[in-house]
Amino acid sequence: MSPVPTHWFYHLEGSTIENVLPELLEKTLAKGWRALVKLPKEMLSEMDDLLWTFRDDSFLPHGRDDEPMADWQPILLSSTADKAEGFEAVFVIGGESVSDMTGVERAMVMINGRSETDVTRERGRWKQLKAAGAELAYYQQNARGSWEKKA
C-alpha cells in the first residue's frame, strides 16, 4: 500500500454520475474493498436513494455517515468526511476531496465533462497530484459510453 493512492480520473461525456457510479461501486465491492463516496451535501439523499433502486434485481449495500452504524457500511456516503481510514477506495464527486487518504488503494475522481468548471477544476487536481508524484490514470468515455484510457 502506497502512502498516496493511485488516482483514476473518470471523464464522463455522455453518461451522468448516476449512470456510472453504481457499476463502479459494484466492481469495488467485487474486489472486497470498502468504498467512501464523498459528494456535495445536496447530492447525498438522491445518491442514497439511487443505490437502493438503481436496478430492479439488485441494490448496493450502503449507508450514510450521518446515520447509525456508519462504520459497518461497505459503501459509505458522506458530504463531510475528511479521513478515509478503513477504506480501500474513495470516490470524489463534484469537486469534493478527502485530505487524509491513509490506507486507500485507489481514489476515483469523477469529472462531469459537460461542465467546464468541473473539467478545469479537475485539471488543476491532476497537475497538483502529478507534481506530488502520484500515480495517475485518465479514462474518458467514447461515443459508445465505454471507457478509454487516455493517460
Rank of each mutant, 00 (worst) to 15 (best):
L44C: 07
I93T: 10
E85W: 02
V37G: 04
K83P: 00
F59D: 06
A30L: 02
P40I: 08
L25Y: 04
V20M: 04
D57R: 03
D82N: 13
S45D: 15
E85N: 06
P40N: 03
S78G: 02
G63C: 01
P68W: 12
D49Y: 13
L29Q: 05
W33R: 05
R64F: 09
G124E: 04
V92F: 00
L29E: 03
D48Y: 09
T53N: 08
E122Q: 14
R123Y: 08
G103H: 11
M110T: 09
E105Q: 14
V92L: 03
V20F: 06
G95P: 00
Y10P: 00
V4I: 14
P61S: 03
G124D: 03
L60G: 08
D82L: 03
K31Q: 13
V37H: 07
I17H: 06
D57L: 02
V20E: 06
K150A: 09
A137R: 11
P68Q: 14
E67Y: 10
A107H: 08
V37M: 02
F59Y: 15
A89I: 13
R114D: 12
G94V: 07
P5A: 03
G32W: 03
R123S: 07
N112Y: 04
A132Q: 14
Y10R: 06
E42M: 07
L77S: 10
L50S: 10
E23F: 13
V104I: 04
M101W: 05
Y139N: 11
Q140R: 15
A30I: 00
P68G: 13
K150Y: 04
V37T: 09
A30V: 00
A132M: 10
S2C: 01
G94Q: 08
H62S: 10
Y139R: 10
Q141L: 01
N112K: 09
I93G: 07
M47Q: 10
L76G: 10
V4M: 13
K38W: 07
G14N: 12
W147A: 06
